[in-house]
Design a protein around this nucleic acid. Structure first.
Lengths: 242, 242
DNA sequence: CAGTGGTCTAGACCACCGC
DNA sequence: CGGTGGTCTAGACCACTGC
């Protein structure tokens, strides 16, 4: 037996079907909430929950005192930046097969820039984790991660420390990274990490400086990720905030 | 008399105050919804609406069957990319005063790349609008906008066609741009528009290719915006999607 | 098992919009 | 003014979590 889904989600899916099906034309007004609630045999609030979801997804526009209108479908955009993904899954979603990646792990004293972001003591011990990812034998990503030793606590274990860092943190330390504040920039050609990726004349490189947070917004991990722009595309869906 | 705000927003603001005030510590569990609803003298659903808002803003974490927990405050990030702003307001928020901007407006036949994005006929008439923005006498932004003549309809008026394009569309054509799909990339040094901005050796340039939509997601405007990265910073708050 | 959040209802009143 | 969405209630039952 399949688990039954909440009825507001059921209603939402039905509405999506009707829209995709052309039962409701783009730009047209839906029947009033009261009518629709009766039609679906749910209460008005339940129907409204469904509409709220659709509104969040940009599939309908609700105008107070006027009505609810169908908007045209937006194409789904690939690996959108506002979603947080691991570099590994980015590589896979670009249709590449991750090749050899060289790593180095050292313990270094915390520099001022990182200590401010990670809110830990300057000079305290920080694990610095560097790696190059390759695809088809060519380097495509260079990343440097800074992880205060204190957040790992007793869990630090040099041996398991590879693969997806986010997975490592979750399974070994019980820390879930769910958010990151990312500054996106273009490194100079003279940047030594950038240079490791400048293989072809048509290559450009994007640098993501990312501060990763756990569920309750504690800063956990600071990283520099250099990504080749001829290999990866960066999309954002931007919305007007009222 | 001030207008009264809905009580769920009042409750939300009170909760924020209590959190900032330290009445609820970071990481601690809030009293149950039933208790809090009684405390605020509202129904449980109303209290829940307040909590939902806070959850969206990342200020609390709700765990089913367990409780609602306070998360630490996230710093507000400046001119975050997932918000849609006009270039003019970006310049102002960077603390710069917009100087002279040179413009050119021509009508050109639609090229394939734009026609696909704008879903209009190839070779149909498109208004091409170019401008350079300056600050302190130096160019900081180069932008090129493509606007199918048919979306303007009878409203096209060469004379008023300056200043904020988004404002122009709203006031003259009744079109509100509320969303954009943006591809962020690093142009090559050989790009002729990019070169117009490469003044200093430490300058790098970001290119935003943006397709702007109106309320019901009709593509309206396609633009290339070249922005100097030594002048502007680009932030994104990324979130794990479940 | 007890306690928590998740869903749902039926009805009420209000605020806004266009005519 | 009539019709629309926005808020609110009091109570109900369910699903999940941790002990």
């Amino acid at each position: 037996m399949k688990k039954e889904k909440p009825s507001y989600l059921y209603v939402k899916d039905e509405l999506v079907k009707k829209i995709e099906n052309g039962d409701f034309e783009v730009g047209s007004k839906l029947p009033s909430e009261i009518k629709m609630a009766k039609y679906f045999n749910v209460s008005r609030e339940t129907f409204r929950s469904a509409v709220k979801k659709l509104e969040q997804e940009g599939k309908v526009v609700v105008k107070r005192g006027v009505g609810t209108f169908v908007s045209s479908p937006l194409s789904t955009i690939p690996s959108s930046l506002e979603n947080l993904w691991s570099i590994g899954s980015l590589i896979r979603s670009a249709g590449l097969k991750e090749g050899e990646h060289r790593e180095s792990i050292t313990t270094v004293p915390c520099k001022k820039e990182w200590s401010e972001k990670l809110s830990c003591e300057p000079q305290s011990e920080v694990i610095k984790h560097e790696r190059i990812r390759t695809a088809d034998g060519e380097p495509v990503v260079y990343s440097i991660n800074f992880l205060p030793k204190k957040v790992l606590g007793a869990f630090f274990n040099n041996e398991n420390f590879s693969g997806s860092l986010l997975n490592y943190l979750k399974s070994n330390c019980g820390i879930s990274i769910v958010r990151a504040d990312t500054e996106l920039s273009v490194p100079l050609h003279t940047d030594k990490y950038c240079q490791k990726l400048l293989i072809h004349p048509s290559t450009t490189v994007v640098l993501l400086k990312q501060l990763h947070y756990d569920e309750i917004n504690r800063p956990i991990l600071y990283s520099y990720d250099y990504l080749r722009n001829d290999v990866f595309k960066f999309w954002i869906r931007r919305t007007l905030t009222n």
